[in-house]
C-alpha cells in the first residue's frame, strides 16, 4: 500500500472542502472496497477523508411516500429497520444479502453507490426503484446517476448525503450469488409503483447496472411472472468470464426477473 495522510472531518462542509483541496483524495466510508484495492495498489489516494465522524449521515427515515436513508447508514441497520421492513420489505432485503455479517456491520449505502461496483446490490435497488441520490450540492435521479463500471455522475468534490427511495407497493430483489464470493452473478430488482414498472439488473452488464425496457413493457400489461415467459435478454454487452458466459448471464436475467416479480407479488401484497 502506498503512503497516505488522513483527515477526520466532522461536517459535510469540511469533508467537501477537503475533497476540493485534495485532487487525489478519497472518501473513506466502510472501507471494505477501498482498503482492499489500496492493498493491491490499484488505488493510491494521497489523503483519506474518513466520514465516520461526520454528524447526521446515518439513519433510516420512513415518510408516507418515501424512505430516506443516510449515506453512512450501515447495511445491517437498513436490513434491520422495522419501519422499512413494514413499508418495503423488498428493499430491506437487499443489504441483508451483501457480503457477510462482518461486512454488513461496516459497509454503507453511500459507499456502495459511490463505488458503483458492477456486481453490487444497492445499484440494482436504486435504479430499480427510481431513487434519488441526494448529494452535498444537488439531487440526482438514479437514471442519470450510473455511468458505467465504477463510474457515476458524482463530481470530484461532491458527497452523497442521502438516498431517497419512493415507496413502491411491490418491490423485490432476487440474486443469483456467485457461490464463493457471494457477489451477484446476476441480480434483478423489480418494482411496481402505480403504473411505473422498473426492472434493473446488476452483475450481468459490462457497463454496470441497467434497466430492461422490454421486460418493463411486458409487465405493464400484467405484473406477473407469466408476462415474462418466452422473453429473453440478448447476450450482447453482457459480461463473460470463467464464472459464467454472457449467454448464461442472459438466461439468468430472465429467471431472476421472473422470481423477483413472483416475490414482489407475494411480499408486496395483492395485485392491484
Amino acid at each position: 500500500m502506498y503512503a497516505f495522510k488522513f483527515e477526520r472531518p466532522t461536517t459535510v462542509r469540511q469533508a467537501v472542502n477537503l475533497l476540493a483541496k485534495n485532487e487525489e483524495g478519497k472518501l473513506l466510508a466502510g472501507g471494505h472496497s477501498l482498503i482492499p484495492v489500496m492493498k493491491l495498489r490499484l488505488a493510491s489516494p494521497s489523503v483519506l477523508i474518513d466520514l465516520s465522524k461526520v454528524e447526521g449521515l446515518s439513519g433510516v427515515e420512513v415518510t408516507p411516500r418515501s424512505v430516506v436513508i443516510g449515506a453512512m447508514t450501515k447495511h445491517k441497520d437498513v436490513a434491520n429497520s422495522k419501519e422499512l421492513q413494514a413499508v418495503m420489505p423488498g428493499l430491506a432485503a437487499v443489504p441483508g444479502s451483501i457480503g457477510d455479517p462482518h461486512v454488513r456491520q461496516v459497509g454503507t449505502i453511500g459507499g456502495s453507490l459511490a463505488n458503483n461496483d458492477p456486481n453490487a446490490d444497492y445499484p440494482a435497488a436504486t435504479l430499480g426503484l427510481g431513487a434519488t441520490i441526494i448529494t452535498s450540492k444537488r439531487k440526482i435521479p438514479a437514471d442519470a446517476y450510473f455511468k458505467g463500471m465504477f463510474e457515476t455522475a458524482l463530481e470530484p468534490d461532491e458527497i452523497i448525503t442521502k438516498v431517497s427511495f419512493p415507496i413502491a407497493k411491490k418491490a423485490a430483489y432476487q440474486k443469483f450469488k456467485h457461490p464463493a464470493s457471494g457477489f451477484a452473478l446476476v441480480g434483478v430488482f423489480v418494482s411496481k409503483r402505480g403504473s411505473e414498472i422498473r426492472v434493473a439488473v446488476t452483475g450481468a452488464g459490462a457497463n454496470g447496472v441497467f434497466r430492461v425496457p422490454s421486460f418493463e413493457e411486458a409487465l405493464k400489461k400484467r405484473f406477473s411472472p407469466k408476462s415474462l415467459e418466452g422473453l429473453t435478454h440478448t447476450a450482447a454487452g453482457l459480461n463473460s468470464d470463467i464464472h459464467a458466459s454472457a449467454e448464461y448471464r442472459a438466461h439468468l436475467i430472465g429467471v431472476m426477473a421472473r422470481r423477483a416479480v413472483a416475490a414482489a407479488n407475494e411480499k408486496g401484497g395483492a395485485e392491484d
Binding site: G31, I35, K39, Q105, V106
Partner: peptide, 27 residues
C-alpha cells in the same frame, strides 16, 4: 487471506465483530 474474506482476523470493535485486516488502526 488479508482480503476480508476468511475471517481469521475478526475482533470486536465497540461491541461489533470486524475484520481487523480491513480497517486502519487509527480508525
Amino acid at each position: 487471506c488479508d482480503t476480508s474474506q476468511c475471517g481469521a482476523c475478526v475482533v470486536h470493535v465497540d461491541g461489533a465483530a470486524r475484520k481487523s485486516c480491513t480497517m486502519f488502526a487509527w480508525q
